[in-house]
Design a protein around this nucleic acid. Structure first.
Lengths: 98, 98
DNA sequence: GTTGTATTTCGTTATTGTTCGAAATAAAAT
DNA sequence: ATTTTATTTCGAACAATAACGAAATACAAC
């Protein structure tokens, strides 16, 4: 766990929003073809964020590189899910260093 | 407490280092004329950080603006101290939003 | 294999962050 | 009052981030 990379990933309101939305996909996103077990389809996140696809895609890449979300590809779709273990790990790490 | 401002202040390794050093001033800084109760003299922090005075001064200003440290001026010196309440507040806030 | 849909990567622009040295300010000592 | 010491602010250079549209890639369906 690279604390610096993770905290930089979190130092952006859009990325924190995305992580928060992924906590309760049923509440935050309208229905999708696949159950939310697999995560939320990136297209839904693009819509919700109100920014261009490419911008949101970049944000998702930062979150993934930091390990805060995991992805699963099904067909042509990519599903994003919170990595609860990594998030808990960050909270523990920042509590210790701070 | 402006979570965005605080997390941006923390998204820099030098500033996190400074906060960490201020946890145990006796261990991290050599003696100073005033007791560490008042905080650590900025000059000591300049030395420790190994960056230019102006750069470290800017980092300290960011920490103070975010509320993570408080300052006390005695004579021509400025002493910096952790704001434990704000730090605990941040930890609680990030735990809740994340 | 061509078309259509989903997503990412690329190139660009604008904004913000980091760093420095030099100048400015503040307070104390001579 | 001038000098010395401590600190901050200013101005400039460079790096990193955020945003967009357009081009490229991936995959499925026809």
């Amino acid at each position: 766990m690279d604390l610096d990379e993770v905290i930089k990933a979190l130092a952006n309101p859009t990325r924190r929003d995305i992580l928060a939305w992924l906590k309760t996909p049923e509440a935050e996103f309208c229905e999708q073809s696949f159950p939310f077990e697999h995560g939320v389809c990136s297209g839904k996140i693009f819509e919700r964020a109100g920014l261009s696809q490419s911008t949101v895609s970049a944000h998702l890449a930062v979150l993934q590189k930091a390990g805060l979300v995991s992805t699963q590809k099904i067909g042509q779709w990519v599903f994003y899910k919170r990595n609860e273990e990594a998030i808990a790990g960050f909270l523990a790490a920042i509590r210790d260093t701070l």
